[in-house]
Amino acid sequence: MKTSKEIIAGPDETPQASAEPPARLRRWPRWLAGTVALLLAAVLLVAYVWQPPAVEGYRSPYLDRVHSQYADSPVARFHYTKTGQGAPVVLIAGGAQWRYSYRDTIPALAENHTVYAVDLPSQGYTEVAEDFSYTIPAMADTIGTFMDAVGLKKASLVGHSWGGAWSLSFVERHPERVDKLVLMDSPGLNKEPASQTAAFELPVVGEVAVKLMRRPDFETSLRSAFAHQDRVTAEVIDETWAWLSRPERRAAFVELARGQDYAPLDQGLGRISASTLIVWGQDDHWLPASYAREYGERIPGAEVKVIPGAGHNVHEDDPAQVNPLLVKFLSP
């Protein structure tokens, strides 16, 4: 009679594991891989295929009150307004903003100046040619393109936020075309960009974030640029969200966020020859007021004015304090 032999592991031996894991464990990796693949496909679909609905049929109360004009060029069909008489001043709005942000600035400056408030590519109602590159140099070049289109050889520039960076780039490369320069809460130092735009700089994440943005999300972001919350009315929100909700405007914003290379601007600060005014909101939660002081130290002869109790959109947030500064500085 044969007896079975019991195999006892020695001190240096381990029992042999079963060649096949239990069925439950074999199914888990396949299930997990399938789920990850589906999620990845959904994210990529949102990022690169799906388009969110844009606001339809919005009639701008502001455009009903002003006289819009258009200037054609090979780069873009610029939407702008021309107000007042005197030495020319060109107003450049910030990212995800348009000439509407200067609604309280234009009347004050127009008393002594011809004020051109323009939408650059990605802004408002300017239509851009295909394959436009949303880099800082490209955006700066459109300032010169616009000036050529409306017959301006030289002008003073007022730029806010990203619009200030584009203005700074233009004056560094074309000093002969700029009389005076005003920078309001503008990046341009070789420092970290505002944390509020960090997500849009990431591949895929940026596309998803901007496409999932809705009016309440935009309102939250806009309010963070104001210290005086009563200034952020429903009209203020709708006037920008109406066009920013368009697919091509959302895509342009992502490209702008990824083109924030300020190192070249930083290197050229000491060569700026135009008279320069730096205006900053003391309660700016996007870019700290310490940037204003650094600009003042590095741009030859620059004046610095920090506005107490004002946020990032300083000229909208507190026009009563900002407008007199601009009028005085820009006066001949």
Rank of each mutant, 00 (worst) to 15 (best):
K2V: 11
K2G: 00
T3S: 13
E6N: 11
I8L: 14
I8R: 15
G10T: 12
E13Y: 10
E13C: 02
E13R: 04
P15H: 06
S18K: 13
S18I: 02
E20R: 15
P22M: 05
R24C: 01
W28I: 15
P29A: 11
R30Q: 11
R30I: 12
W31I: 13
W31Q: 15
A37P: 06
L38E: 02
L39N: 00
L39F: 12
A41M: 14
A42M: 07
L44R: 08
Q51Y: 01
P52C: 08
P53D: 14
R59A: 15
R59H: 13
S60D: 03
R65S: 14
V66G: 09
V66L: 02
S68R: 13
A71P: 05
D72W: 02
S73L: 03
R77N: 11
F78I: 08
H79T: 01
H79R: 12
T81V: 15
K82W: 00
K82N: 04
K82I: 00
G86D: 03
P88K: 04
L91D: 03
G94Q: 07
R99N: 03
Y100M: 00
R103Y: 11
D104M: 07
L109E: 01
N112T: 10
V115E: 06
V118D: 04
V118G: 10
L120W: 03
L120E: 10
S122F: 10
S122L: 05
Q123N: 12
E127D: 04
E130L: 12
E130Q: 15
E130V: 05
S133A: 11
S133I: 07
P137N: 07
A138K: 09
M139F: 01
D141S: 12
V150G: 06
V150H: 03
K154M: 02
A155H: 08
S156W: 11
L157R: 04
L168Y: 06
L168W: 02
V182F: 05
D185E: 07
S186N: 09
N190E: 13
P193I: 06
A199I: 13
L202F: 08
L202V: 12
K211C: 02
M213V: 02
P216V: 04
D217Y: 03
R223G: 13
A225W: 11
R231A: 14
V236C: 02
W241G: 04
W241S: 05
A242E: 14
R250N: 00
A251D: 11
R258K: 14
G259M: 07
Q260V: 04
P264G: 06
P264H: 03
L265M: 14
D266I: 00
G268L: 06
S273F: 00
S273D: 10
S275V: 02
T276C: 12
T276R: 10
L277W: 05
Q282W: 00
W286S: 15
L287P: 08
P288N: 08
E294P: 00
Y295W: 07
G296C: 11
I299N: 07
I299P: 10
A302Y: 09
A302R: 09
A302T: 10
E303S: 14
K305T: 02
V306S: 05
I307V: 15
H312P: 04
N313H: 07
H315G: 03
D317T: 08
D318Y: 04
V322D: 06
V322T: 14
L325G: 07
L326T: 10
V327T: 14
